[in-house]
């Protein structure tokens, strides 16, 4: 192929893109649909993961109860030991908070109406609730060592952690990630196959045109190149439209659906957090499907 043909071949790609309007539009629409299904599914799975991560973060607090028989000096001693523990390197303690018996009672009464009814009869004099320390820690990795240290300070049985809940959530997180990943892979394969089939159809509709080019003496490159340019254009246009629609869909429909139907309040990942991942993924799918499908499909009709 001569270099002077390159501008012509590029131009032919653009011209064909416009002149084969119906098939081009069909290919773009199929691409957009597939991209939106993929993008929306990814966003939902990612939000579920982010929700579980947030829940796990909220579990990183140990409640430690001071024995009812402890004096105020004992409490000061405990606080000093906690300060020393927090200052130790690798102790896993981020901070701790001391809550008096009265504050514990007040917090519990405020937490629900049912508890308020039960606890209303108690005052500072007959408050049965223990003096409490809330210890925030960094990671569940070293939590068992921390729990042993706290048992040494508060005594066995006075420590309440969320390790069991954490283990359950961790399992749920990895199961959700695995299921999400496989579904994404299957969805991606289906989407690429659907897109490739559509592009194949658009090429099939023009097989006579390809045959004419070959009869006139066009080389394979000369025939395939405009189709690839067309494939690139289809991929680009579909990507741009899909990105815009995905943004609107996420900020409106998906957000509303999750907020309306999810049992728990979920803080959604901001749409801009998916930039540039989703646009790049759309572009990759669009270009791959447009270019590879065009090239493969045209090649099938070259043999005349």
């Amino acid at each position: 192929m001569k270099l002077r043909n390159i501008p012509h071949l590029l131009g032919q790609g653009f011209v064909s893109f416009w002149r084969n309007g119906v098939m081009t539009t069909a290919a773009i629409l199929v691409l957009i649909c597939c991209m939106l299904v993929l993008g929306s599914f990814y966003a939902v799975v990612d939000n579920l993961g982010a929700f579980i991560d947030n829940e796990i973060d909220s579990l990183k607090t140990v409640s430690a109860y001071v024995d009812a028989s402890a004096s105020s000096e004992d409490v000061e001693g405990i606080e000093a030991q906690l300060k020393a523990l927090a200052a130790e390197e690798g102790s896993n303690v981020i901070s701790f908070e001391h809550v008096t018996k009265d504050e514990v009672l007040k917090q519990m009464m405020e937490s629900s109406d049912e508890l308020r009814e039960v606890l209303e009869k108690y005052t500072s004099e007959n408050n049965p609730l223990p003096e409490t320390f809330y210890i925030k820690f960094e990671s569940f990795d070293g939590v068992q060592t921390l729990l042993r240290n706290l048992e040494g300070i508060f005594g066995a049985g006075n420590i309440k952690s969320q390790v069991v809940t954490y283990e359950s959530l961790k399992d749920l997180r990895s199961t959700a990630a695995m299921v999400g990943l496989w579904l994404m892979v299957i969805l991606l394969i289906v989407a690429v196959l659907v897109i490739m089939n559509t592009v194949k159809l658009t090429v099939y509709a023009r097989r006579k045109e390809i045959a004419i080019m070959r009869y006139i003496g066009a080389t394979s490159v000369f025939v395939v190149a405009p189709f690839i340019v067309e494939g690139v254009l289809i991929g680009l246009v579909a990507t741009v439209i899909s990105c815009g629609l995905q943004f609107l869909l996420y900020n409106n429909v998906i957000t509303d659906l999750i907020n309306d139907y999810a049992a728990l309040k979920i803080n959604l990942v901001p749409a801009m957090d998916y930039v540039p991942l989703i646009p790049l993924a759309f572009l990759a799918i669009g270009l791959f499907a447009g270019v590879v499908a065009s090239a493969i499909s045209v090649k099938k009709h070259l043999d005349v």
Partner: peptide, 19 residues
């Protein structure tokens, strides 16, 4: 392609590019 460039063919069904 090089062979076909040495000849000009007028097909019965014309085989023109419709677009």
């Amino acid at each position: 392609p090089h062979l076909r460039r040495t000849m000009g063919v007028v097909f019965q069904d014309f085989r023109l590019f419709p677009n």
